[in-house]
């Protein structure tokens, strides 16, 4: 899959972004814009089950968004990360900073 697709769902408890495709420096502008916007104003779940790759650029966005959410008193979860997303996160040594969940009910 060459394209990155991000769909948004807003609930009364927070926002859900469903991310599909590769997150790299070629595609991450939309990812950055949407994640930064939502992480500051709502509890946010990122469904990353269909992400096919995650570069350091995308990881940097996630780490900054987690900090933004914490500063704003919000929470950010990664829902069902694909194996390649989990591998990328663990490779940074910062896996403990990421709240990874297997089901939406674990968030809200």
């Amino acid at each position: 899959m060459d394209q990155l697709n991000i769909s948004e769902k807003v609930t009364d408890r927070g926002a859900i972004l469903v991310v599909e495709g590769p997150v790299n420096s070629y595609t991450f502008t939309e990812f950055q814009t949407k994640v930064y916007a939502w992480s500051k104003k709502a509890d946010l779940v990122l469904d990353m089950s269909a992400v096919t790759s995650l570069s350091s650029a995308g990881l940097g966005v996630l780490m900054a968004a987690i900090d933004d959410a914490n500063d704003a008193g919000r929470k950010l979860w990664i829902l069902k990360p694909s194996e390649i997303v989990r591998m990328a996160i663990e490779s940074t040594g910062f896996a403990d900073s990421f709240a990874m969940i297997g089901a939406l009910r674990e968030a809200f």
């Binding site: 350091s56 900054a64 940074t92 040594g93």
Partner: peptide, 14 residues
């Protein structure tokens, strides 16, 4: 306004 050095550590650890 971004993290730097993540790519290098990713490549090293993988």
């Amino acid at each position: 306004k971004r993290w730097r050095g993540l790519g290098l550590i990713m490549v090293r650890n993988l």
